[in-house]
Write a protein that binds this DNA or RNA. Sequence first.
DNA 1: ATATAATCGAGACGGTACGTCCGGTCTTGCT
DNA 2: AGCAAGACCGGACGTACCGTCTCGATTATAT
Lengths: 223, 223, 223, 223
Amino acid sequence: MSGTAAGTGGTGGGRRTGRPRSAAADRAILHATRAALVDLGWGGLTMGEVAARAGVAKTTVYRRWPTKSELVLDAVAALLDEELELPDLGSLRADVECVVQRFAALIDRPEAKTALMAVVAESTRDAALRQRVRQAIVAPQKRLVVLGRHRALERGELTEGPGDPGATVDLIFDVIAGAVIHRLLVSGEPVDGEWARRFTTVLLDGLVATASPGAGHRPEEHR
Amino acid sequence: MSGTAAGTGGTGGGRRTGRPRSAAADRAILHATRAALVDLGWGGLTMGEVAARAGVAKTTVYRRWPTKSELVLDAVAALLDEELELPDLGSLRADVECVVQRFAALIDRPEAKTALMAVVAESTRDAALRQRVRQAIVAPQKRLVVLGRHRALERGELTEGPGDPGATVDLIFDVIAGAVIHRLLVSGEPVDGEWARRFTTVLLDGLVATASPGAGHRPEEHR
Amino acid sequence: MSGTAAGTGGTGGGRRTGRPRSAAADRAILHATRAALVDLGWGGLTMGEVAARAGVAKTTVYRRWPTKSELVLDAVAALLDEELELPDLGSLRADVECVVQRFAALIDRPEAKTALMAVVAESTRDAALRQRVRQAIVAPQKRLVVLGRHRALERGELTEGPGDPGATVDLIFDVIAGAVIHRLLVSGEPVDGEWARRFTTVLLDGLVATASPGAGHRPEEHR
Amino acid sequence: MSGTAAGTGGTGGGRRTGRPRSAAADRAILHATRAALVDLGWGGLTMGEVAARAGVAKTTVYRRWPTKSELVLDAVAALLDEELELPDLGSLRADVECVVQRFAALIDRPEAKTALMAVVAESTRDAALRQRVRQAIVAPQKRLVVLGRHRALERGELTEGPGDPGATVDLIFDVIAGAVIHRLLVSGEPVDGEWARRFTTVLLDGLVATASPGAGHRPEEHR
DNA sequence: ATATAATCGAGACGGTACGTCCGGTCTTGCT
DNA sequence: AGCAAGACCGGACGTACCGTCTCGATTATAT
């Protein structure tokens, strides 16, 4: 669970009496939100439409999520919230390729694509929303990078290196996530095995080694 | 000139009768759009508001740009349309760092940030818009990568390498642009000299060399 | 009460859930409509203007009256809806003169004049509207004719005569109302006591008797 | 010809030079106006629509008729402008019945109905328009009454009677025209031979004679 | 058992913006 | 000059959602 502030239970600690909020409504609303996003896109999504699809009154939606951004954020977060396992494939190269493909698969779903970018766009003007995006979406994904790096360090494929380890992880995540997102959403090209392999090579070995004399074979040496 | 389909003259070759469209109106509208974007953001941007700021009737805006997306796209494209010069700094490393910083400076302006992401979000549901985004915004930037690579090849810092050169340029652009965008808009951290240097190192030398024993000095060897 | 279909409560018997419609809004809207009609005329009357004057949202007006015609109809009907009493003046001649003057006074008000004709004009293309005009405006006035005729029959000034009594009442009403309306709105002349007297003479005694040898004195005989 | 101010020739005396106005355009515009009135009604009638139907530019319409009212007025006047002949049927009664039926036939055409009432409605707020309505539409019709009266005087069916003859004609016309219009447009019933006969009886003989003991035979005495 | 209290559905409410249409005016180039 | 074409400003159109509110009707827990 991404455990956001909204949702069943409302104000949290307080209330003891009265009719409790329906957990079924929560689920129906989030589900309806994702479905509506696919059909209508961010701009076409309305609170009223969500309520109608969820078979719920508009007030019931507003009681839980005061804004469209927060609603969509939670709807998408729930989507990315599956257990993020990273199978140990034995080598840093294989692990990276796997992360790339998984992340691409995650993003490249109709209900995630639009929603993610729209929430990011919205977050450029709303600090609180930006904070929640990082917490609910970015952080969980970043754990995969931390995990992969940890394994590589244990295997001896990488060393601690100089400087702040956190900054290094951040950098790597920016590169991986950024490249995948840009490829998919801006360039509009698929992230297939071929691209994942070539990207991984550049990331691990660098542009110089990759596109230099004798570079073509280097990748094979690692297999 | 980004020379998009919209704007004065309409369909281009065609019309020769009737009162011609005012070129001044075009300029006023695009300027008003950028100003309104900064003040109000994508969601708050209104065709009516743009018209009012431009001192123009709403119909005059709609006659030229039928949708908000197209209007904003052209407004932003005009913004990114300054002559993109890449000074020859003597080394691939310096050139890359320069491109990174320039691109970051371009993106990290209030009128560009929100608009870009919103247009990208919108383009996930509109193939025609996606096409125009690539044409008007992505393609010009990509030329810098082509130019830098050309210089590096001449200097002997890179070789042609195997495979399609176009694919290679695409990959590199996805990595650079993606990382910068992700850093700025998702991670919400600044792209300063320090980050640009570290990113460039990873890109050129690879993660393994960078974060391995003795990696810290490698960059110096290239200078 | 003319009790038209529109107004508070909607379809009448039906709805029992949701927030009930405000009766105050109904009154404010109808009042604003009449006021706006006087100031702006039919052509200048705007749903938005009515809403603004009534201190009400445009949607609140549309929710009750979907078209300008229906709104104006109800506004005018309410105006003509005062209790229509016909004092017994003792003779058919006096009664007719009274009805003529009353009807003229009713029509010859700024808020009624334009509205009535405009609604009639509109009704030439809209059967449903025509039906409502007859129900809400014509029928009540016609009762005066029925009443006057009834008294004259009791006094022995008239007899049942041949043919359908309904058709006779209709004919008389067409003559009285038509003449008054035509005098006021088309000829543009006032309906004063003099005219009412002369019209009544023609109606009761006929053109031949009125404009024939010795006709000039006949009216006096009835006084 | 109803000879209104508008139409070909424009400012009247003045202009000598330049391209003369096209008479064909005048005809096309008036014809298009009538056609559009039938199809769309007063409210739906548009200067632009008229221009389009007439195959003429909007400016060409405005150059001749500055307002919708004046355009429609002329279009309708042209319609009622046929030579108004009143065949001498030998008796006042037959003449009146004939006038009633003719007038009803004139009014009861789709292109005349709506237009007439709409112009009248508009004229309640526009003195100049009211003046032109009387000149172009009312006056010609009134001549029939004058003519019929003249014949009846010659035949000895009527005498000059007391008072102003003009006022008498006005009164008679208000009664005839008003009754027919009211019957057709407000009551929504047809003006057939039966109604014309009954109306004529009331008009000539009066209500008292018509609906009194022995009244039923009176009409026959005049035949 | 019965209050108490919050939730639920429904839908009206005051607003704001939408994208379209028309009214009238004005350029522009052709006749 | 007139004319066709069509852009221009302004303003109303009727609709859609917004987020809030008032209802009556349900459910829970807390007496």
